[in-house]
Design a protein around this nucleic acid. Sequence first.
RNA 1: GGGCGAUUAGCUCAGUUGGUCAGAGCGCUCGCCUCACACGCGAGAGGUCACUGGUUCAAGUCCAGUAUCGCCCACCA
Length: 859
Amino acid sequence: MGTFLDWRAVSIPDKPTLDGLEERWNAAWDAEGTYRFDRTKAREEIYSIDTPPITASGSLHVGHVFSYTHTDLVARYQRMRGREVFYPMGWDDNGLPSERRVQNYYGVRCDPSLPYDPDFVAPEGGGTAKEQTPISRRNFVELCDSLTAEDEKAYEAVWRRLALSVDWSKPYRTIDDHSTAISQKAFLRNLARGDAYKAEAPTLWDITFRTAVAQAELEDRDRPGAYHRIGFQRTDGSGAISIETTRPELLPACVALVAHPDDERYQPLFGTTVRTPLFDAEVPVLSHYLAAPDKGSGIAMICTFGDLTDVVWWRELNLPTRAILGEDGRLLPEAPAGVDAATYARVAGKTVHSAREEIVGMLRESGALEGEPSPITHPVKFYEKGDRPLEIVTTRQWYIRNGARDEDLRAALIRRGEELSWHPPHMQVRYEHWVNGLTGDWLISRQRFFGVPFPVWYPIDDDGAPDYDRPIVPEEAALPVDPSSDCPPGYDESQRGKPGGFAGDTDVMDTWATSSLTPQIGGAWTFDDDLMSRVFPYDLRPQGQDIIRTWLFSTVVRSHFEFDSLPWTNAAISGWILDPDRKKMSKSKGDVVTPMALFDEFGSDAVRYWAASARLGTDAAFDTGQMKIGRRLAIKLLNASKFALSFGAAPDAGAVTDPLDLSLLGRLSEVVREATAAFDGYNHTRALEVAETFFWTFCDDYIELVKERAYGSRGDEAAASAKAALGTTLSVLLRLFAPFLPFVTEEVWSWWQEGSVHRASWPTQGEVGVATAADRGLLGLVGTALSQVRGAKSSAQVSMKTEVAQAVVRGPAADLERLQHAATDLAAAGRIAELRFEPAESGELTVAVTLQEPDEPQA
RNA sequence: GGGCGAUUAGCUCAGUUGGUCAGAGCGCUCGCCUCACACGCGAGAGGUCACUGGUUCAAGUCCAGUAUCGCCCACCA
């Protein structure tokens, strides 16, 4: 550490101010390497944090400032406790958000069929969504890469201003070669062990983005719909069965009807067949326990595929497939087997919406539609980032096992959740519920462009068809690879796409497939095993509660497979930021108030104070009032420190002899104990609260009581005790506040101490010098008396400097006895000429004050 | 339909294992330019601790139920 001599003020300023502190100390920390990670330390000396990599392709929200501050509080505390803190910063720049940002920013879209244009220049000023210029995949990826790099700079500026004590020397990006290589290597090992596999299956599909979507990325939205009651004629001619559906356009995809096995209305029909209206396909009537007798008519049509229940029925009842939906969300051109082709031709190529209108019209015409559709509102599944309902399309995708289809694995992963220390503890329940509710393995492939490519190729047989069951994988040493431009081992580029040659996998990994490896990326797994062994398993995973099911769970899964251990020992879960009206702060609202504007208005320390005032896991209101209080606290620290130091205060607990001073240190010792215990329990709010409460008592009562004495009114020895107490307390307080208010504490520390307060040691009870015999309650007792003297002046509406002719303190003899030890300081602070003590029966301590008045004294 | 969390002064929130816990700050009222701070200081007023039962000598504090709010999950016929 440097001495910081270059950065401190020349002397204590006459008018201390917060202005300029952020710029000055950030420069100092950067130049001195205050937060640089020393990788020579042993694992037990290190505190490692698996920082959330943030998506920079947007704008920082106050919610991010909130939760990242929580992490920094822990980092700073642990650093002061003597741990070497591994606190990297990452950017989660791969994936759809970056793609969308590039599309909107430049007005382009990716068309993988186009060749790379090395002379391509990004269009200026962006374009409208309608007029997007198609560009090659490689050109598109290059734009993603450069634009996210720009966005990351803007984010870094905010984080630095917030004083996140990360080591900025090597931030990682989830799209860079390092992350890509690790992500691909981890995947190949999953593949080799059988944790990962490729399968063709019905998949939730976003027709806008034309990609598969995982269970974790779904959300329900209420949408208007309508029940259509449709009659199916029985094949034996004995009449019709009516079903109700909200998706009449899927009628050509119908493969069966299903009712509950106990439903007496339909029991006689099980095993018989019916014909679909219009399309004339013969389908069986079957039974399955998932059919709900009380829904609709109690019998449902099974289509391939209208919803996830259809998939379950299709699988469990071994039904055929009649796929009619394409990846673009339109009905396929060809009628499925068994469906009347002429009728189907009327809807082929139509969107879901148009096909529905057409089919309903035909049904009405044919008389199969019974009554009119009855409108309802029902939940529909959406991709969380999409705005059109998801469809289910059969596609070939990569999966990683997650326990959904393996009870032993599921139980093992739930045990991992139990093994982890959750802060707050109830967050574990969310994890358990998610794991217990999994219905399918983790779908990790996406039909997108800006992501980590799957490092596999497929041999092409003599007929020109890829053999997906025999993927070709690269050597680990060759990673990262891009199978769309790199050749698999044993082939050359001329064989790409040819019979007897190879084809590269065209998919990219879901962003979680890479961000689930942040512990490995941060620790440079397999590239720097020495570093990895010093940081893994990490001490802390901080994150938001909304991504327990994604980031937290997926990281546990990957670590469980690769290391057979948890990736970290603690998880700290931050809550939401709410609008002042208690609603979850919307993205748009949150963007209105930018973090930088808050820093400018209140100061970074003040914004941190607001964030630190909220406990982990608890939602907090966006409250500028709290920031004002933080700012006030920071300013008070400047002024009180300046004042205390003006006496020549210096830390020396051993030189404290006066009972009042010992009382102060006794309380301080207790504050240190509580704040330390609170931080150890990931309760930063409590640590702040005890320090703050003590600080105000220190300012308002203690300093007022001893300032005369510190000036020397009672001689050198009495003054020395006060100066030592002031110095000891100030030193401890600055360090207690350092994690919360890094700028102002560093400033004050620089006035009289060497080095950075952020590398100073966390205060201990030992250094405060616990005086067991000390009367710790004395300061409070004196404060009570002083308050009464002030009250008398206040109600007389006179200045606090008004002389008191006589003050008579009445109360229990024992209290008076104790007060005698601070009588001189009390008289000085209250400007009391004559201070008397009279024992009284009452348990209350009262002070009768006679003010010095020229005319007549008042009681 | 299931689950988790919250409900304490006008506002934002503390209240650790049941017994000075009815608190803090903001806001409000009334004062004070006290030689660190007017970005300050002092003194006040404000609450049947959501509701209903129960356990206990004693309950914001434990149990059961109810209500309201928030979030998560659920097979969308």
